[in-house]
Design a protein around this nucleic acid. Sequence first.
DNA 1: ATCACCTGTGGGAGCGCTCCCACGGTACCT
DNA 2: AGGTACCGTGGGAGCGCTCCCACAGGTGAT
Lengths: 351, 351
Amino acid sequence: MATHGARGRSGGRPTLEEVAARAGVGRGTVSRVINGSPRVSDATRAAVEAAVAELGYVPNTAARALAANRTDAIALVVPEPETRFFAEPYFSDMLRGVGAELADTEMQLLLIFAGSDRERQRLAQYLAAHRVDGVLLVSVHADDPLPDLLAQLEIPAVISGPRSAAETLPSVDSDNYGGGRSAVEHLLAHGRTRIAHITGRLDVYGAQRRVDGYRDALRDAGYPADERLIEPGDFTEEGGRRAMAELLTRDPSLDAVFAGSDVMAAGARQALREAGLRIPEDVALVGYDDSAIARHMEPPLTSVRQPIEEMGRRMLDLLLTEIADRRPAVSRGLERRQIVLATELVARTSS
Amino acid sequence: MATHGARGRSGGRPTLEEVAARAGVGRGTVSRVINGSPRVSDATRAAVEAAVAELGYVPNTAARALAANRTDAIALVVPEPETRFFAEPYFSDMLRGVGAELADTEMQLLLIFAGSDRERQRLAQYLAAHRVDGVLLVSVHADDPLPDLLAQLEIPAVISGPRSAAETLPSVDSDNYGGGRSAVEHLLAHGRTRIAHITGRLDVYGAQRRVDGYRDALRDAGYPADERLIEPGDFTEEGGRRAMAELLTRDPSLDAVFAGSDVMAAGARQALREAGLRIPEDVALVGYDDSAIARHMEPPLTSVRQPIEEMGRRMLDLLLTEIADRRPAVSRGLERRQIVLATELVARTSS
DNA sequence: ATCACCTGTGGGAGCGCTCCCACGGTACCT
DNA sequence: AGGTACCGTGGGAGCGCTCCCACAGGTGAT
């Protein structure tokens, strides 16, 4: 009932202390209620909650972060320039999955691009300052130093595609090998035998695995892979166009193309058109990702679907587990930290 | 030289205190160096900088935020669902402008979507917790409660398009009225007189202004506007298609269309094609934004260019000024807080 | 020589939390 | 009766900074 009761010194946001005074309890108790600790009696809890509501109390994140040494924020790091982020449905789908899963949480998501050297510099600084509790790393190339930096700083991280078969970080991926196989098997089943492949960037492990699937499927069907039918792309539309043009001049007898992404398939389609070839009559076309592009292409594109949104969700799950595990020095579980999800071929009219 | 000299208690990140000890100065002095205060002698500064480098010191953001009551972060709030964000080049261009300008700063940018009620709920909570120093508000509709919430919480904010002629918040906009005029004048100059208009969402002030420009340009040329040639769209491609189809059934004699955005122009183009009409022979088409879509359309789309990236940059400038002004109770400058940038018609083959 | 006034510096106080130890109370054993 | 155990609770200490006051020493006016 002293002067410092009611609303605290004018204007300012109410503090824990003020809520405690209002509810007639101690600071510790309010903290327990705020953080959902079970060791509070129902009556006390109710009183505190009432005080919180009356005062419009909102915890001060900075104070909490300082005292508890956590930020309640995680970062989605895209080691690509912004333009590619927006051009590539893969990223936005992933973001959607992560965002959806995060909505149930108190966590905040930060989107960070690290395409240029300058941006990477900033990112390193940012991570060194421990401004996030964990990192989701999307689309990492083989020689990227980021994972090591994270390990060194002891920041929990999950990677979207392992960098190699020996990946040490927790990861979520789709079955790229199986996806590559299924694309080729589908084309073979439709009577195509001269099947070309436009690969993704080969410093991305998943792209390599798709090539492996492609090769093995052909070999198993008795068509030893013809290296001249494999042309590297870079996941961009222009790269796909260029690769397709190259393939056509190199071997005009091809009757099908498996592109390592829908975006590249769109580029390939353009090159095929320019060459006066019909899809699928002259050349069958299969993409990868089953993004919106595939559905809207003309003709609609057969594509290998990966559950990108689900991958995002699973990544977040893994990361939250990592973070939680690290907090008390609890038994680091030995569960699977490398998740692989199945792909599925979606047949449309381009093949 | 005491035991607590060197690296602090094993492992943990070094603190200000440790840097001070290492450099043989006081805490305050290190703080001054870190924050670039001029009231430090060159020798001392050098000593501190050396200590910082040796220890690999990085300031603790949480502690700083708590003590100084600022976060060094701002939010770019998009009151739309994620999907629209990715579908609309406007947003990514804006983001690019802001990001570019921000690179010179220590500030962190957060991207926040507030399309669904749930997301808005979270956002309100987030803002109430004062987790950002300021907010960039993009694409606000007339009845949006967000600006008022921000005002109430006394959080500096800048809006991308004023909500009305009486907007109180600082804002950056392009000259929508002039842009609308120039589109129509261009079409008139090319001999078109039955000019239809597909508007943007009319609860967006800028869209209204484009309509005003359209009307006035026609009137000034002696063609009193025919309300039947004005059809509301919603900034989406499908909306543009639908509006165009509607216009065509209503008045098949039209010979030109001014669409309130490139995305809607793309939809209109589709409807025109379906109706067997040629662009520009039968119907001339003009868009708005001059986004990548315009350049890639077939035929390339004449469009009213707005300098979106620059708008982003200017918004950030304004916001940073707002934030700086609010810190010490300095003379709140009376400079212009409503910036309007010129548009420019980019003529291509669609008109 | 005195005073006023700078400049550069050290360090106390305090930001609003969480963590944890201590304490009174009740319940159940021996 | 005393002992042990476990609730629910209060509040001290401390997280790593910034802010600001105090102070030493130098400079120039009086």
